[in-house]
């Protein structure tokens, strides 16, 4: 893929309406040493028991997006997460949590995070 545009990152933070979960979604476009484009997805989840508590990290995942998914990653960067992707992102949050407890492998958690991009419709 040719190196077009700037290097940039779009970082979204949102606290769910019950104020108990904080989700961060960050999509970064950068350049490799050979000047080709690289996309990274970072997905973070923080939780707290009560609204008066401070948020605690459950896990932070950083996933390098496969070249085959670049078109979907670019579409996500330009158009945002669609509803299928947000459902996948919530499920990826659960996977991340299970991985942090050692109940599933990190590879499965990474696969769940990659799926956030892969399930994009158009």
């Amino acid at each position: 893929m040719p190196a077009t545009g700037t290097a940039f990152s779009v970082d979204l933070l949102i606290v769910t309406p019950d104020q108990l979960r904080k989700i961060t979604f960050k999509l970064s476009k950068s350049f490799k040493p050979d000047n080709s484009v690289n996309w990274d997805l970072q997905f973070g989840l923080q939780e707290r028991k009560k609204t008066t508590d401070t948020f605690a990290d459950v896990i932070q995942l950083k996933v390098n997006i496969q070249p085959a998914l670049h078109a979907k990653a670019e579409a996500t960067a330009k158009k945002g997460l669609d509803q299928t992707q947000t459902s996948a992102a919530f499920a990826a949050g659960d996977s991340a949590k299970l991985a942090s407890k050692g109940e599933i492998s990190k590879a499965s958690a990474n696969a769940a995070a990659r799926r956030v991009i892969a399930v994009r419709g158009t």
Binding site: T6, G80, L81
Partner: peptide, 24 residues
């Protein structure tokens, strides 16, 4: 006037909305 900026900003708004829809 950066061609990447406003689309990225709009995309983040769309993402936030869809995260809220999914939550609700």
């Amino acid at each position: 006037s950066d061609p990447d900026f406003l689309p990225a900003l709009e995309a983040s708004k769309v993402s936030a909305r869809n995260i809220l829809v999914t939550t609700y």
